[in-house]
């Protein structure tokens, strides 16, 4: 539901609004651990990154935190240790996830323990990826579309990541089957022309990763997008609903991945 954004656009079109950078003095606060854990059905994707929060006025270089003990255990009790690959980044080159199985992430750092668990969802195939022109407030813009067949059982959740000429787009594209269960579904990866992203042009290479994600992760991405992106649409910004226990920010997602690439005609 991007109605609010549309309202915003209409407002800025209708009235002479003006934007400026201001100084806001924000209090420093306690630093929290940030854990980003990913496990997929593809070898080499399993990676856990650990960092900390910073003050608003600090720079955006988030250094990884080393010396953590990281492991993933499946519901049959098989534990895989994730050694540190580069500072703060812990990897397993071989670990993959199987549909229906639960995986538990455990992170020990400086005497603190964080854990999270996630069940690998059913894989849904990406049937096609194509770029189509859409009218938007009178302009014509090129947008990527993904088509897939949603399974008849309710509870499928998807996330799409778009790369244009190898550059990852910032928008979070998620979709559930709340209103479209069991249907041939198309999602338009909608990027408004005034957003920071470059518009898609003829000749561009568009790649889309389609992930089948767990319901808890749908909620995470939804609430991250609504509440933590710094925008002003939400009445009450808040931290996203995480599946990590122990007081860290971030998430642990076990999901399927499928990529397709098209060259824009």
């Amino acid at each position: 539901m991007r109605i609010v954004i549309l309202f915003g656009l209409i407002l800025s079109i209708s009235f002479m609004s003006c934007e400026k950078v201001i100084d806001v003095s924000l209090k420093d606060s306690e630093k929290l651990y940030v854990i980003e854990g990913i496990l997929t059905d593809r070898e080499g994707d399993c990676v856990v990154s650990i960092s900390k929060t910073k003050n608003f006025d600090d720079d955006n270089i988030f250094e990884g935190l080393g010396d953590a003990v990281v492991s993933v255990t499946d519901d049959e009790g098989n534990t895989t240790a994730l050694p540190e690959a580069t500072t703060g980044v812990y990897r397993s080159a071989t670990l993959t996830a199987t549909t229906g199985k639960a995986y538990m992430l455990e992170v020990n750092i400086n005497g603190q323990t964080f854990s999270a668990s996630c069940i690998m969802p059913v894989k849904v195939k990406m049937d096609s990826l194509y770029v189509k022109e859409e009218g938007f407030f009178g302009e014509t813009i090129k947008l990527a579309n993904v088509q897939y067949e949603d399974p008849v059982v309710k509870g499928n959740n998807y996330r799409f990541i778009q790369y244009v000429n190898g550059i990852k787009e910032k928008n979070i594209f998620i979709r559930d089957d709340d209103y479209s269960d069991g249907n041939t579904s198309t999602i338009t990866l909608f990027t408004a022309p005034d957003e920071d992203e470059d518009e898609i042009k003829s000749g561009d290479k568009v790649r889309v990763d389609m992930q089948c994600i767990a319901p808890a992760l749908y909620k995470y991405w939804y609430s991250l997008d609504q509440g933590a992106s710094g925008g002003s649409n939400s009445a009450s910004p808040a931290n996203p609903v995480t599946n990590i226990e122990g007081g860290a920010l971030g998430y642990f997602s076990v999901h399927t991945v499928e990529s397709k690439t098209v060259v824009v005609p």
Binding site: V24, L26, K27, D28, S29, E30, K31, L32, V34, E36, S51, K52, T53, K54, N55, F56, D58, N60, F62, K168, K170, I172, L224, G227, A228, S229, G230, S236, P237, A238, N239, L249, G250, Y251
Partner: peptide, 20 residues
Amino acid sequence: TFPAGKYHVNDQTYFYYTDR
């Protein structure tokens, strides 16, 4: 509600909040 700080996930910067 303004951010209490910021952090990095999903290859970009997000904000975190403490007091409502």
